[in-house]
Design a protein around this nucleic acid. Structure first.
Length: 672
RNA sequence: GGCGGUGUAGCUCAGUUGGUUAGAGCACGCGGUUCAUACCCGCGGUGUCGUAGGUUCGAAUCCUACCACCGCUACCA
């Protein structure tokens, strides 16, 4: 009877593209899922999308499509990303699906029936023009964070969930189950939080309707977490006519989440389950973030890294390796393309790739590609076997505690040992001296070591399974191996015909370093399926100004301070149509904290230009100012607004100032 | 403010219940080797273990104070 294992990622919100931070959680989950499958577990791996909410409704309205159409398009891009990353999910739950809606309503009904949901009033700060409630801590100087206008304290009828009833039970559970919240630092925070007392949670809204109707009161839609968290059991058919998946996989569940949403998973979710009489999941694991430039990856910082570009550039296995290797257990990791390339070259190209290549080359050269039989194993061979067995055992151990980085480091001990083994045995000397038995033995041990590496690395880099399988001439190269195949030495049959092929990870040279901003997700572009907008985004400081100019300038300065950007000719410069324009109107753009929509007058005609300067200029102070715009820039949509050009600004770090003519001049004047 | 954490080689980090000359990887330097993707193997640190005190025969490891940085302190997914 196979043991079961259920692993989940958060369901992602389809209002924006995914970045590599999202890919991190999902890759971790995939690695665990594959590992458990290899061990013979019956595995269910769930990911999905959280599709409701006011934000989506707004964006859809701005794009003039229905919310469902809007999310369909973005969700398709999620799925495409997961496919490119070799994510082997068994199910993809969408909260707009009927099965989920029915489940949430059933759960709501049950908890309501037994008295833990009650109707009351939610008081919140409301921005009338934006039709949005804001939590107090999100207010910017007491005003709406979107539009800057004043907010008022309003009351709205809402359903509330009695978290307070379960605080003691939850605390007892967390304290008696040390594994429930991991790593321990998060566990302490949660214990502390609960001890501070729990307030009841507002779980419905009437101010928008893109959501799941409350069963007994359809004017309300179920709000946020109650809807989203339920995905973990709705996807198993809980409360439906077929609960077989639920019975098979629950509660052997592991929820992988980023550290920012640990609380929702360790407070709200368990209490929902308790209230419904459902057992709690085994574990919630909160991993750290992948930081960029020392800070969180975020759209407004303009440092969001696009996983599609990276996969295209380096391959899925390489990206997976980097993500899993770079994150310290429980802590944050640092992303930079330079770090990625470094990892790639040292670990993948030099150590692993080269090991494979040199080993197979020798088998081809000395034995016509046939793996010989090991007839004379000696001390060195025993040591290689011992290290292999140890590495396998340790990878397993680290994987069990979700330390992917340590697991990979353990696997690399075998890589290192094998490289050293070649040095120690010097097969080229054995060949020269005609020590054929010895040479046979060494070559067999090398091939066998590679065979084991293929198995051990399979959960992390699934693409390697087939590629290495081919090169090793395995009878069924694409078949995913069982974990136990790594635990036995001597499985590879002598006589197997290897095919050296191309290096698995070609070394990257410095000349090919791509511009870093090419991997950034263009900020402010409307998220539209998988087709990427060109990365240059007009008039958004987080795009060209901070993103391209600032970034490229900075990284070049670091590498070679004396190298300016490549020379251009006067003709190339002439392709820019730079003009003086006068700002005639300016307003904030709803839902964008850095963008202003400017109307400028340019030689008699008016245009709309979106500029990422809201942090630096108030709309009213811009009116009447003369600015310089790129007049022939291809239009782009930013937050639903079509921008016909971009405004030039000088940028250093967080400082920004508009470029403006030194004296008044007729608007439309050419800048050259 | 409250609670918790971190501060160890240029960089990223390990350092078990306090015990001889404080470690790994990367980067850097030298040597070796040639099967290999200018790769691999070996050798190389003078690190105030944040600062100042204290406990102890003995502390990076325990205690106190201070400094710096970080996390949590609820209804944005």
């Amino acid at each position: 009877m196979a043991r079961s294992f259920y692993v989940t990622t958060p369901i992602y919100y389809p209002s924006d593209k995914l970045h590599i931070g999202h890919a991190l959680t999902t890759t971790m989950a995939d690695t665990l899922a594959r590992f458990k499958r290899m061990q013979g577990y019956e595995v269910r791996f769930l990911t999905g999308s959280d599709e409701h909410g006011q934000k989506i409704q707004r964006k859809a309205a701005a794009a003039n499509v229905s919310p469902q159409e809007y999310v369909d398009e973005i969700v398709a891009s999620f799925q495409q990303l997961w496919q490119r990353l070799h994510i082997s999910y068994d199910d993809f739950i969408r909260t707009s699906e009927g099965r989920h809606i029915a489940c949430v309503q059933e759960l709501f009904r049950r908890i309501y029936a037994q008295g833990d949901i009650y109707k009351s009033e939610y008081a919140g700060w409301y921005c009338t023009p934006c039709e949005t409630f804001w939590p107090e801590r999100q207010l910017v100087e007491g005003a709406c964070p979107d539009c800057g206008r004043p907010v008022e304290l309003l009351k709205e009828e809402s359903y509330f969930f009695r978290l307070s009833n379960y605080a003691d039970a939850l605390l007892a559970h967390i304290e008696s189950h040390p594994d429930f919240v991991q790593p321990v630092s998060r566990r302490h925070e949660m214990i502390n939080f609960i001890k501070g007392g729990l307030e009841d949670l507002c779980i419905s809204r009437t101010s928008f309707d893109w959501g799941i109707p409350v069963p007994m009161d359809p004017r309300h839609v179920v709000y946020v977490w109650f809807d989203a968290l339920t995905n973990y059991i709705s996807a198993l058919g809980w409360g439906s006519s077929d609960e077989s998946l639920f019975h098979k996989f629950w509660p052997e569940a592991v929820h992988l989440v980023g550290k920012d949403i640990v609380r929702f998973h360790t407070v709200i979710w368990p209490i929902m389950l308790m209230a419904a009489g459902v057992p709690l999941p085994k574990k919630v694991f909160g991993h750290g973030w992948l930081l960029v430039d020392g800070g969180k990856m975020s759209k407004s910082r303009g440092n969001v890294v696009d996983p599609f570009v990276l996969i295209e550039r380096y391959g899925a296995d390489s990206i997976r390796y980097f993500l899993l290797r770079e994150l310290p257990y429980g802590g944050d990791g640092y992303y930079s393309e330079e770090a990625l390339r470094q990892r790639y070259n040292t670990d993948l190209a030099n150590d692993l790739g080269n090991l494979v290549h040199r080993s197979l080359t020798m088998i081809e050269r000395y034995r016509e590609g046939m793996v010989p039989a090991a007839t004379a194993p000696a001390a060195l061979e025993n040591d290689l076997q011992r290290v292999a067995a140890q590495a396998v055992a340790q990878v397993e151990e680290e994987l069990e505690r979700f330390d992917m980085g340590a697991a990979l480091a353990a696997a690399w001990r075998l890589v290192d040992r094998a490289n050293k083994y070649i040095e120690e045995t010097a097969p080229w000397n054995l060949a020269r001296q005609g020590q054929n038995e010895r040479l046979d033995t060494v070559l067999y041990h090398l091939a066998e070591g590679l065979r084991i590496l293929r198995v051990v690395l399979a959960p992390f880099m699934p693409g390697l399974v087939t590629r290495l399988g081919h090169q090793l001439g395995l009878p069924n190269p694409g078949a995913f191996p069982a974990w136990e195949e790594a635990q036995t030495w001597g499985v590879l049959s002598p006589g197997t015909h290897v095919r050296r092929g191309e290096p698995l990870f070609p070394r990257l040279t410095d000349e090919e370093i791509p511009p870093e901003e090419g991997s950034l997700i263009a900020t402010g572009t409307r998220v539209a399926g998988a087709d990427l907008e060109p990365s240059g985004v007009p008039a958004d400081s987080t795009g060209p100004a901070e993103g391209a100019v600032g970034k490229a300038g900075r990284s070049q300065a670091e590498q070679s301070p004396d190298t300016p950007p490549a020379e251009i000719s006067i003709d190339e410069f002439a392709r820019l149509d730079l003009r003086v324009a006068r700002v005639v109107a300016a307003e904030r753009i709803t839902g964008a904290d850095k963008l202003l929509k400017l109307t400028v007058e340019l030689g008699g005609q008016e245009r709309t230009v979106v500029a990422g300067i809201a942090r630096h200029y108030q709309p009213q102070e811009l009116v009447g100012k003369q600015v310089v715009v790129v007049a022939n820039l291809k239009p782009a949509r930013l937050r639903g607004v079509t921008s016909q050009g971009m405004v030039l600004a000088a940028v250093v770090g967080d400082e920004l100032t508009l470029v403006t003519p030194e004296k008044e001049i007729a608007s439309g004047a050419k800048v050259r």
